[in-house]
């Protein structure tokens, strides 16, 4: 398990980096203050976790429960609560809700893991947190969608508000939403403007310019309603060729050339690319 987790996480790291860029574009202030004031610096861990709503204080309890599979991140792909503050020596019981497919609990750095993902409601996994600090964990199948949590052990940074700014996931998607929306509006705006102009033109007395009107009167006696459009003259062919005197020899050579190309490519694709590479399904 750990062999695979390593590279997987590092790729997610890249992903987080990209997400971080987006937040920088969307709401620099919010994220910047999050680390400064709350005193708990999750280092972007919760930037894509939709149900993160600050650190929930559960100090003074010997046993604390975190639900696995609460609503969040687009489905039941979240820990509830996402971040909890406990006293050192507290046992945290992770309890499966049975929602949102199979989950597990895997520590980012601290070595504990509930093993393979399971879905059964009522499944539990316990871990006792002795050391002061932040212990981050995630659900392996749903890491990419933001199913992450953290246990804050001890009083570090507890004096300030636990909030930590707006949750990153939302600010990010709002930013993207705004960007996409404004781009869409930008493209649609000339259309809207055109519609507006047409509407106004239809309502008001303004029509074609005097010049056009005169020109049209010369062309056409009618000056009622909108001006008539005049089509371009019909093209006259240089020579007229009728059905019986026309042999599409160029066409025949073109389509035969295409045929040869298609047959060669087909043979290459079927016998070299397809049958030449294995393994293949044989039963």
């Amino acid at each position: 398990m750990s062999e695979d987790a390593g590279p997987t996480v590092s790729r997610r790291g890249l992903l987080r980096g990209a997400a971080g860029t987006a937040i920088a574009a969307g709401g620099v202030a919010a994220v910047g203050t999050a680390a400064g004031q709350s005193g708990v610096d999750f280092d972007g861990w919760f930037s894509d976790v939709s149900n993160f709503d600050g650190v929930v204080d559960r100090r003074g309890q010997g046993e604390v429960t975190v639900e696995v599979g609460v609503e969040g991140n687009g489905d039941y792909w979240a820990f509830g609560p996402a971040a909890v503050r406990v006293d050192p020596g507290t046992t945290v019981v992770f309890e499966w809700t049975g929602e949102g497919s199979a989950h597990n609990v895997v520590a980012e750095n601290d070595g504990y893991s509930s093993g393979d993902p399971v879905r059964e409601a009522g499944t539990t996994f316990e871990h006792t947190f002795e050391e002061t600090g932040i212990s981050k964990y995630y659900c392996d199948p749903h890491l990419a969608v933001g199913m992450k949590g953290a246990i804050v052990v001890g009083d570090m940074g507890a004096g300030a508000d636990a909030g930590g700014g707006s949750p990153g996931g939302i600010s990010l998607s709002e930013g993207a939403w705004l960007l996409v929306g404004s781009l869409g509006l930008a493209v649609a705006s000339p259309l809207l403007f055109a519609a507006f102009l047409r509407y106004r033109r239809g309502g008001g007395p303004s029509g074609p310019s005097e010049e056009t009107r005169e020109q049209l009167q010369r062309v056409d006696e009618v000056d009622q309603g909108p001006p008539r459009a005049e089509e371009a003259p019909v093209e006259k062919p240089e020579t007229t060729i009728e059905h019986d005197e026309y042999d599409p020899s160029g066409t025949l050579s073109l389509v035969l050339g295409y045929l040869v190309l298609v047959v060669l490519l087909w043979v290459f694709m079927y016998f070299v690319e397809f049958l030449g590479r294995g393994p293949t399904v044989i039963g």
Partner: peptide, 12 residues
Amino acid sequence: LAERGRGTLSVN
């Protein structure tokens, strides 16, 4: 957005 009826059309 162009003005209707100004000159002949480009097509028939």
